[in-house]
Amino acid sequence: MSRAILYIITMAVVTYLIRMLPFTLMRKKIKSRFFRSLMYYIPYTVLAAMTIPAIFRSTGSLPAALAGTAAAFLTGWLDLPLIAVALAAAGAAFAAGFIV
C-alpha cells in the first residue's frame, strides 16, 4: 500500500467517524452555549486560515496569484455564487500569468 493511500484511508476513517457517531448515537441538542458558538465560528476560521496566506502561492507566480486573489475578493464581496468566484479567480490568474 502506498503512503498516499494509507493517508487517504486514515482521513476517510476520521471523517466518517465524525459524521457517523453523532448521527447514530446522539439524538439530543447540544446545551453548552460556548461549544455551540465555537462550532458556529469554526467553519469560517478554518477556511480563512487555510486560504490566507496559502492563496498567494496557489498559482505559478505571485503576481498571478495576487490578481486571482483580487478577483476572488471582488466577486465574493458581490455575493456571486461559489463557482463564479472560483472561475473568476482562475481566469484572472490565468490572464495575469501571460501579462506579467
Binding site: P43, Y44, L47, A48, M50, T51, A54, I55, S58, T59, G60, A64, A65, G68, T69, A71, A72, F73, T75, G76, W77, D79, L80, P81, L82, I83, A84, V85, A86, L87, A88, A89, A90, G91, A93, F94, G97, F98
Partner: peptide, 25 residues
C-alpha cells in the same frame, strides 16, 4: 498546459473566499 492547471490551482481557494467573505460582510 501548465498555464491552465497553474491558474486552476486557485479555484478552491476562490471558493473558500466566496464562503467566508460574504459571511464576514
Amino acid at each position: 498546459p501548465e498555464a491552465v492547471t497553474d491558474a486552476m490551482g486557485i479555484m478552491l481557494y476562490g471558493m473558500f473566499v466566496a464562503i467566508f467573505l460574504p459571511a464576514a460582510k
